[in-house]
Amino acid sequence: MSILLPQPIAAYFAADSAERASVAACFSETATVKDEGKIHAGRAAIHRWKTEASSQYTYVSEPFAMAQDEDRTIVTSRVTGNFPGSPVDLRYAFTVNGDKIARLEITL
């Protein structure tokens, strides 16, 4: 099933599937990402987070559902790869400001 994602979120998933190092460009300079209990603040920290995660595991993320929760867009994606517990459905809670992502929280 294909879903129509808002442009900044679609750009995030496209970058994550092609050139993971470019994921940070989808975020504002002061954005934050919360993943695995850790907060990565600022575009440079987000770049380090994605670079480190991508060097550890190979994976594919396939968004299949989307919902609104106040100011957040919640995207559920099936993530399959060479990590413990694969495959897993993850919830990506995006807060978008203009054409950039201001906040992302990834949870089970």
Rank of each mutant, 00 (worst) to 15 (best):
R48N: 14
T51R: 13
P63M: 06
I9W: 00
G85K: 04
V96R: 00
G85C: 10
R48V: 10
H40E: 10
G98W: 04
R48H: 14
A24N: 07
Y59E: 12
T32D: 14
I74W: 06
E36S: 12
I3S: 10
V88Y: 00
I106L: 07
I101W: 00
R20W: 10
Q68Y: 09
T73V: 14
R20C: 11
P87G: 05
K34V: 14
I39E: 15
K50T: 05
Y12C: 11
A45G: 11
P8N: 05
A45M: 11
S28T: 07
P87E: 04
E105A: 09
R72L: 15
G42C: 02
G98V: 07
E70N: 08
R20Q: 14
P6G: 09
R43P: 02
T32C: 12
A45N: 13
F83C: 06
L5P: 07
S61M: 06
I101K: 00
Q56C: 13
S86A: 09
S54K: 01
V33C: 04
N97K: 06
R43M: 08
I39N: 12
R48P: 05
T95E: 08
Y57V: 11
F94R: 01
F94Y: 07
H40N: 08
A44M: 06
P63C: 06
F64I: 10
I39D: 13
Y12W: 09
T76A: 11
K38D: 12
V60I: 08
E19F: 03
A31Q: 03
T30D: 15
L104P: 03
P8S: 04
E105S: 10
V79S: 04
A31I: 00
V23T: 04
K34A: 13
I3P: 08
Q56G: 10
N97E: 12
D35N: 12
A24E: 09
L4I: 06
G85S: 12
S55E: 13
P6F: 02
T73G: 05
F13S: 09
A25D: 09
F27P: 03
S77T: 08
K34G: 08
K50M: 09
D71W: 01
K38P: 02
D71T: 07
A65W: 06
K38V: 15
A53Q: 11
L90K: 08
A25R: 00
A67D: 15
D71N: 08
G85V: 10
T95Q: 08
I39M: 12
P8I: 02
F83P: 12
E29P: 03
F27N: 00
P84D: 11
G98Y: 09
G98K: 01
T30R: 08
I106P: 03
R43H: 04
A14T: 11
V75Q: 02
T80R: 01
K50P: 03
Q68I: 12
A102P: 01
S17H: 07
A41S: 15
A10T: 01
E105P: 03
F13E: 14
E29N: 08
T30V: 14
I3Y: 07
V60K: 06
E105Y: 01
R78M: 13
S86L: 05
T58S: 14
S17F: 02
I74R: 05
E52A: 15
T30K: 11
S28E: 07
F94T: 06
S28I: 03
